[in-house]
Design a protein around this nucleic acid. Structure first.
Lengths: 258, 258
DNA sequence: GCGCCCCATTGATCTAGATCAAGCCGGTGC
DNA sequence: GCACCGGCTTGATCTAGATCAATGGGGCGC
């Protein structure tokens, strides 16, 4: 059967530009737009472009960073591990730096990074990266924006977990998904249910049940497809909170030093 | 009865330098040490020194920051609130900025800030602060260090909550408290038990029980005083993890731009 | 002295969500 | 065709920790 959403997705993927050099990737990163060509050149000299398959571990907890890693495509999970027990800290989406705090301060990574799907990375020698940040003000500002956004995302995740029940989290997740889409057009879950459950901080079984319960609020769930029968009951019982649910974009601060 | 620990504490308090001007406070902030006198002067011109009593709310969730606030003494709780329900995000200790991410990006605060004890603050006009960060590289680096440390603290808190049980959290908290102190010298809890419980992400009742249970591991608990009978059983059953329990200092990065 | 308030303890109960344990369904290999 | 495997659902059970409730006890005002 034809599936408009999946088609749109893959069309997007096909259109998305996959850079062929590190320099090009840096040049296409929106929040690096205020950084001088010279500095991007300098960074690119110390950098390599990597394509990393699903499941790869990019770094391990307690490692001292050797590289700054810029995720330019795909998705990476940051995982807190204790023996066999793994808990998701957050999932990083392109375009973003992987744990820049550890790289900048030469301190051990606090989490494991594992690729989900397939990741495209610009990998930059840590020393070169730090040198560039300490010598170029515009780059420093860009990294600061990036780090600030990451901090705020972390706080939002904590609020989501501490303030809301499982049902509310699932409800808000779906509401977010449906935002701005045409009602009565079915929407597909963008990820395996297992992963969504993990992101929302619950077991797959609990997610499954909560999803089924959404039937009570005017939704129709068929496999991984969500259809809105009536948007009101859901909106009435869970309310989106921009201080939790809105995305946290990286807003570059223009430099005024020159 | 004489109490060596409390005495040491208050001696410390008496010794601690309470600056009398904003400029002096900025000059005494370790992680601003690489920032030029000129820039500190400029910041101080836009700044005021505040002394704020316990319980005061410094800012509210969803407010757009008008000021950058530098905590130079005392302690502030960042609280996620939903109606009447309050959850602790983190407690900020001096010397640190309060949610610089919101100030820099002109975005709403994600948490309420409430003073515990008494707080000394340098309050700087947000515009002036942002201008200074975007025009002075050394200051930008200092704020980046601060923001990086805050991010890592947030991740550590999340790991502590997600990876460990109540008993383990309490055990590690005590072990941390006892670290480097003379064994067989009783140690006092530095805070009201209620607050400690909140910091550790549990109810006061649960904390009370967990504390009582520590008796099983070679400790003697008498009110707010902890005495070590035998350090081994505790160390054997909970192990401190530097990736969770070590403090996260603000490490200033020296600028190389000049 | 008494009463009050706040904090802590202790016990009893409750419950959200995890965990355990079958089945089920749709794809893929052979 | 059949077997297998990974992801999903569904039901039954368990449990860590919260919540509710009662008591105690120290500090403080008067």
């Amino acid at each position: 059967m034809p599936d408009p959403i999946a088609d749109a997705q893959s069309a997007l993927d096909r259109t998305a530009h996959v850079p062929s050099t590190a320099r090009e990737a840096l040049g296409h990163t929106p929040w690096l737009r205020f950084v001088s060509e010279r500095t991007l050149d300098r960074l690119a000299e110390q950098a390599m472009l990597h394509r990393v398959p699903s499941g790869s571990v990019l770094f391990e907890q307690s490692e001292i960073p050797s590289f700054a890693q810029l995720l330019i495509g795909g998705c990476v999970e940051l995982i807190a591990a204790d023996g066999t027990n793994e808990q998701l800290i957050e999932t990083v989406n392109s375009i973003d730096l992987l744990l820049p705090a550890a790289v900048l301060t030469r301190q051990p990574y606090l989490a494991r990074a594992r690729v989900v799907g397939e990741a495209h990375l610009v990998v930059i020698h840590a020393n070169g990266f730090r040198d560039a940040v300490t010598s170029d003000h515009a780059l420093c500002l860009a990294v600061l924006s990036c780090q600030a956004a990451q901090f705020r995302r972390q706080v939002k995740l904590a609020k989501n977990l501490k303030l809301r029940s499982v049902e509310t989290r699932v409800g808000c997740y779906l509401l977010n998904l449906l935002e701005g889409t045409d009602l009565h057009t079915p929407v597909r879950l963008p990820l395996e249910k297992q992963r969504i459950a993990w992101q929302l901080g619950m077991s797959r079984e609990t997610f499954s049940r909560a999803l089924a319960a959404m039937t009570r609020y005017g939704l129709r769930i068929e496999g991984d497809t969500i259809e809105v029968i009536d948007p009101e009951p859901l909106r009435a019982h869970v309310r989106l909170d921009p201080l939790i649910d809105s995305p946290e974009p990286i807003l570059p601060l223009p430099s005024t030093s020159d």
